[in-house]
Design a protein around this nucleic acid. Sequence first.
DNA 1: ACGTCATTTCGATAGTTTTCGAATTTATAT
DNA 2: ATATAAATTCGAAAACTATCGAAATGACGT
Lengths: 145, 145
Amino acid sequence: MDSTDSEAADPPRSPVVRGSHPLGPAALMDGVGAVAALGALAQEHRLALFRLLVQAGPDGMAAGAIAEALGVPNSSLSFHLAQLSRAGLISQERQHRSLIYRADYPAMNALVGYLLENCCGGAGCMPEAACGPADAALSRQRKSA
Amino acid sequence: MDSTDSEAADPPRSPVVRGSHPLGPAALMDGVGAVAALGALAQEHRLALFRLLVQAGPDGMAAGAIAEALGVPNSSLSFHLAQLSRAGLISQERQHRSLIYRADYPAMNALVGYLLENCCGGAGCMPEAACGPADAALSRQRKSA
DNA sequence: ACGTCATTTCGATAGTTTTCGAATTTATAT
DNA sequence: ATATAAATTCGAAAACTATCGAAATGACGT
């Protein structure tokens, strides 16, 4: 009752690609990566944080601004940023004295892709869509730097 | 400092629809439900379990068969089934002596929909798809029992 | 009623996550 | 150099999650 599967619940982790945290082309996702990404988003503050970064668009947001917006203490936020970062869902860049964080759209695409492929019966779940780095309605009004 | 958001990180949970665990029309998902669903899937065994149920299709699988397939002790599996059930991602039905579990496709659609809507820049992430209860490629080849 | 099979609940243990103040690091301005 | 600002790491407490054997529940056949 198996064999047709690629990965399931067994200890022997296969030597697949795995993590490309520092803003890489995370175009593909395996089960391990999916668990990491899901776990990173499975927390009230972190889901809100990620949503915020997605809304912020390509400009990203500084850590302090995020902490302010979410009403989370600075050190707690840092912890959550690290979690998302470790899962490859966000990227960091220094700008003057601030650290700017951005949502990693390819990584999110890969996660949704994994869910559609593996958890929706091999077909998919939603009507149709096309993803750029958040520009449809939100960042239309901002020029980016 | 905020206000433009619908839900973020504040304690006062809004009186939205929320959980309809026992196989309900979970067509819409809020942030709280999304965190629950993401958390339910953010675990090696549970992700494998859910995948298995998606592949099993509308026929579902008995708890024992699942435990066997995943190589997880019976009582551990029960715990994981309860987690997925609590998140509304699977449903249960008694059949003779066995309990049959099934993936709840509408719930999964709602989760993916939430991610596309809220975490992909308001546009979406994937090219195109259409979701029925897992029949496209997988259950095509199974006869069902 | 009794035995048996299928599953869940209980209870204890080990491990992981979340939280946040205090101390520290990194960068800039004077 | 020294001060100030922006974030991170450290450390320790509280809360949660995962694991699994043993006992309990529920359904069925005889």
